[in-house]
Each structure stands twice: as structure tokens, then as C-alpha cells.
Amino acid sequence: MQAESIEKENWTTILKPKTGWFDINLNELWQYRDLIFLFVRRDFVSIYKQTILGPIWFIIQPLLTTIMFTVVFGKIANIPTDGLPPMLFYMAGTVAWTYFSESLNKTSNTFTANASIFGKVYFPRLAIPISIVISNLFTFIIQFVFFLCFMLFFYLKGAEFHPNKWVLLTPVLLLVMAMLGLGMGIIISSMTTKYRDLRFAVGFGVQLWMYGTPVVYPLSEVPEKWKFLFAINPMSSIIETFRYAFLGKGAVNIDYLAISGITTIILLVIGIVLFSKIEKNFMDTV
């Protein structure tokens, strides 16, 4: 009897039926940090190796988007840009938005895209979406440096814009975007295990979301009675702040930023809870 009770204390793992909603093991995730790092490396190396132009793509993408926005929204639709050079205005929005939307898009099919690997070995499933968000960070940095080059170019041409102390907030903005992209992404990926067609709605939904966020227009152009919508949308204050920090036009609203941060944390927590719930028996429903 005594021997048995001693043995019981030494069990390293106990596999049990899925329990409540808050059965989350973040400790374990930390133990697998090397794996997250290696996934990031894999993503980066494989993108780099598979294309001829390699990382050039990371620059072409925002450049073309910026040019397109400049022509369509700037020249044709004549949407004002707070007096900023249109190219810079759109690029600031695009670079920041792309980081968020790519993180969301890629994490949103975590379960379906990795079904074969999940069916064979166990590791904390969250390692995959987290690694995606981190590898996207590298893409962001490349695009961000490109944006800085653009700023320098416009500065030398004599354009008027004013980077300011809010620039220091950039890492925080990035963190919020990463958390929001991750949170939304894993919520969607958890739901796509049951409803596969949701996957198609994601690309479209993100597109719509972009138009609901001041990416191609400044917040100052939005009529007063609609402004509350932008307080709810966590992305809008982030994009506005980002643009204000680097270009000096727009608005920084601490209240909105705080709401955005809180919404993000709530979504992330919901995401992690849902994800942890789904990951345990996901293989049975594939």
C-alpha cells in the first residue's frame, strides 16, 4: 500500500479525458520554445529557398499595394490623406495592416493545415500559431525598413511630415497586433475544425475589416456619428497611432488604445481557451 502511494506521487504525466474549459498548460509551451524557434526558422528558410526573388517579394507586395491605393483611393476617389504625401500615407497603413492580416490569415487554418503532423506526434499545438506570428514579424521588419527608406526618400525630396516620440510605442503596437492576429486566428482555426466553409469567409472578412479600419482613409474624414465604431475596432487606433508616430498626422487617443488593448487580451484569452479545448480531441473529428 505504502509503495503504491509513493509511486503515485512520481507520475510525470497523467492522461485523462478532456476536463473543463480552463485546462491549459502554458508551462509546457515554454518547454517547447526551441521547437517554436525551429518552426520560425523553417518558415523563413523555406520561403527564402522556394522563390527565385526570395525576400524581394516582401518588398514588392507593399510597394504594389501602395501604388494601387495611391491610384484608386488617392487619384480616382480623391480621398484626402491629412495633407501627407499619399504614397507615405498608404504605405504606413499597409505595412502595419499587412502584419496583422497575414498573422490572422495564416494562423486561421492551423488545425486543418497541420492535421497530418498533429495526428502523429504530440507537442503543444499552440507552438504552430505562435511560430507563425513570429515568422511574420521578420516579414514585417523587412517591410518596415523599406518604409523607413521611403520616408528618407520623401524627406530628401522636401515633403513635410513629423516623426515624434510616439515612435517609441511601436513595439507595443506590434505586440498588440501580434496578440490580436493570434487570438482571432486561433478562434477561427478552432471553429474551422467543425465548419470547413468558415475558411473561405476569412479572406473576405479580413478584406472587409480593412475597409472598416482607417488604412486607406484618415480617421479625421470619418463623420462624428460613426466614430464609435472605430473605438470598438481594436485595429483602428493601432493604425492611427502608428501613422501618427511616424508621419505626425492623425490622432492618438489613449482611451481608444486602452480599449483596443483590453479587447485584444479578451480575444486572445478566448482564443487560447477554445484552442486548448479543441486540440485535445481534434484528431477524432478530422
Partner: peptide, 28 residues
């Protein structure tokens, strides 16, 4: 269940030490 790909419906497994499975080699 042993390799933690899925969970049991009832009952439990207690394990001492690290468990590794060769369900299929070359995963990933």
C-alpha cells in the same frame, strides 16, 4: 492515447518519464 494525439473518453493513464512514439517516422 499514449502518444497524446487524442484523449480517452473515460479512465486514465499514468506515465512516468518521457514517452516517445514512432507512429510514423519523419514527421514534420
Amino acid at each position: 492515447i499514449l502518444s497524446r494525439v487524442t484523449t480517452p473518453t473515460k479512465g486514465q493513464i499514468k506515465i512516468k518519464g518521457r514517452i516517445a512514439s514512432l507512429l510514423e517516422v519523419g514527421t514534420g
